[in-house]
């Protein structure tokens, strides 16, 4: 099983957003998982097997493209890397009146889906977060391992929507 390296196409998740938030609670960072992550990183074969399992699961459920720095918990469990422009901060201005993707008019814009799902699950405020640029060196890595190791703590930051100050402060634990 290799990475899905075709050009990105909008993917409608096959897992309900609520279930995503629930599963995330079960995968939330803790000392046990951090130790598992460290253990995996010392054993290349185990790491490869673990990463392959993550890839298969997330490709099937979310169209995962293995960017290695998962945005799902902040996007209503809808992968922004399946946007043809790979926008991590919301939809482009080309969404059609029916909500279709400008590049693939037969498919719904991933951000239209993301916003619907996040709002329906009570996580609408997540969409105001600012997502930093991804690190292309992390492609094909396990985002779960990276998350447990605390490497993506600053992937997104709270937007000072009301505050209007420009300082961006890490949100910390997710």
């Amino acid at each position: 099983m290799t990475t899905n390296d075709s050009w990105p196409r909008p993917f409608r998740p096959r897992l309900g957003a609520r279930l995503g938030y629930l599963l995330h609670a079960g995968l939330a960072k803790n000392r046990l998982y951090a130790r598992l992550a460290t253990w995996l990183e010392r054993r290349p074969r185990a790491y490869r097997a673990f990463t392959a399992a993550e890839r298969v699961t997330k490709q099937e459920l979310f169209g995962c493209r293995m960017c290695g720095q998962c945005a799902l918990p902040a996007t209503g469990y809808t992968c922004p890397m399946t946007c043809p422009k790979q926008l991590r901060n919301g939809p482009c201005g080309g969404v059609s009146p029916t909500g279709a993707c400008e590049v693939h008019p037969e498919l719904t814009c991933v951000w239209v889906v993301a916003i619907e799902r996040a709002e329906a699950a009570g996580h609408g405020a997540d969409l105001d977060m600012l997502h930093r640029p991804i690190d292309h060196r992390m492609r094909d890595q396990s985002s779960w391992v990276n998350y447990w190791q605390g490497r993506d703590d600053d992937l997104w930051t709270a937007t000072p929507l009301a505050g209007r100050e420009l300082g961006l402060t890490p949100v910390g634990e997710r």
């Binding site: 919301g90 201005g93 909500g99 916003i115 105001d128 937007t159």
Partner: peptide, 24 residues
């Protein structure tokens, strides 16, 4: 920056510009 107030999801379009303004 730019924004399209008319494209779906319309309820998000002001917030999207707010993000860009927060970004600078």
């Amino acid at each position: 920056a730019v924004e399209n107030p008319f494209a779906p999801p319309r309820s998000f379009r002001a917030r999207r510009l707010a993000k860009k303004v927060a970004a600078g």
